[in-house]
Design a protein around this nucleic acid. Structure first.
Lengths: 224, 224
DNA sequence: TAGCAGCTTATTGTATACAAATACCATTCG
DNA sequence: CGAATGGTATTTGTATACAATAAGCTGCTA
């Protein structure tokens, strides 16, 4: 899309992801226009896009708010994601090219290096992990599916969860990718789907455990 | 949303569904603005929405075209729809209220009357069928899921397929709804999901059969 | 005649002014 | 004191003019 409306989109999206705009906070077109250095017109464009991607919700009288996600919303997103990514893996197993397989291997190797380094490089892990899943989606060859997955993956809350991984889970993640590659090698869609389902569901429970830990700490603080 | 942009949205959507705008045809904002009797601003809003709903696609230089759907696209849409509606049915089985169950029964009774009348009332069937599925979705209680399903159901091609049903399939459809109700009565999510999967997949094959018939006719015509 | 340069036209993108709708607040009435 | 009512401020919606960009054409050149 065009320059100004792209800038507005990126700017607002980053403000949401960074927490500069808080969940539930009302946002006004004119204020955003000033922050982005453009007029309201491209801001409105950007807001429409962000609304479609569920970063923003609008109330009955068209006022915009930063979306806030409940725990139920989060579990729902993970369930949908598990289902959709499993479906993607099933399709990918039948369609993946040699080149795509090689790229998957390359990214998973990079993940291995990132997490076995003396100081684990989490941003590098996240980046290669993202690209790994993007290639599976590319191999699935369904634009509609890709669009739907974007909706459940690119959510603020889901994005933040990746940082909850500890070393044990980073290794497990790498291993699951490896198993997925073997399933792909054997063109076994059901196996690939099963591996992917477990992969995503474990990610959810990692987050859920981390979150309940937070709750415990909070309760402890209150008790102290 | 607002009056003018709603009018533009409905108008353009209807033009696409009615075939007044042909698949693949380029559409220009100004021309649509005149047709809808509004300025380009609300038309642009409407186009953004229709693009998100895959009624319209845009090329690399932002020109808009009426989306055209290949057979592969259609099968892909049906597969996704089957998966998502099965998921909706599974969730609904655990959450559905007595009131919602009663409404489902009522709509399925209306379907029964529509198809057993001396002259089957297909529009009535389609309307109650739509409401039946809407209630299942409502019972599933997932806004995100609802949004995704809208994307794969409200497509021009998919909408037209419903009219391919013959009497035999209308009766089967009614019977499957009935079975779904029993699964709901028993709060059996897996059963509900299985029934719904079959329900949607049969819809696809009804369409596919009708379409291959068309192809045969076309080939016969060419041969003649 | 194929292909390219530059101009012309068509189309979309952006800014701005104004209109419409909604929320907010104060005031009044029961 | 609470609820309803009205007016004012705030926010979004729409129209329009203009800017930027892409497409298409014309005529030139090899």
């Amino acid at each position: 899309m065009s320059r100004a409306s792209d800038r507005a989109y990126d700017h607002i999206r980053n403000m949401i992801l960074s927490g500069e705009l808080s969940p539930g906070e009302q946002i006004r077109e004119e204020a955003l226009a000033e922050l982005c250095g453009v007029s309201r017109t491209p801001v409105r464009d950007a807001l429409r896009r962000l609304e479609a991607e569920l970063f923003i919700r609008r109330n009955e009288s068209q006022r915009s708010f930063v979306a806030d996600w409940s725990l139920d919303d989060l579990e729902e997103a993970f369930q949908l994601r598990a289902m959709l990514e499993a479906y993607a893996a099933r399709r990918a197993a039948k369609r993946i090219s040699w080149d795509q397989l090689a790229r998957l291997r390359s990214h998973n190797d990079a993940i291995h290096h990132a997490i076995t380094a003396p100081t684990p490089d989490i941003p590098k892990f996240l980046d290669h992990n993202r690209q790994f899943h993007a290639i599976v989606l590319e191999a699935a060859g369904s634009g509609r599916l890709a669009g739907m997955l974007a909706q459940v993956i690119e959510q603020p809350v889901v994005l933040r969860t990746a940082k909850q991984y500890d070393m044990e889970n980073l290794k497990r993640s790498h291993h699951e990718h490896d198993e997925l590659l073997i399933a792909f090698d054997n063109r076994d869609g059901e196996w690939a789907a099963a591996v992917m389902t477990g992969h995503i569901r474990r990610a959810f429970h990692v987050y859920a455990a981390a979150h309940s830990g937070d709750a415990d700490i909070r309760r402890t603080d209150e008790a102290a």
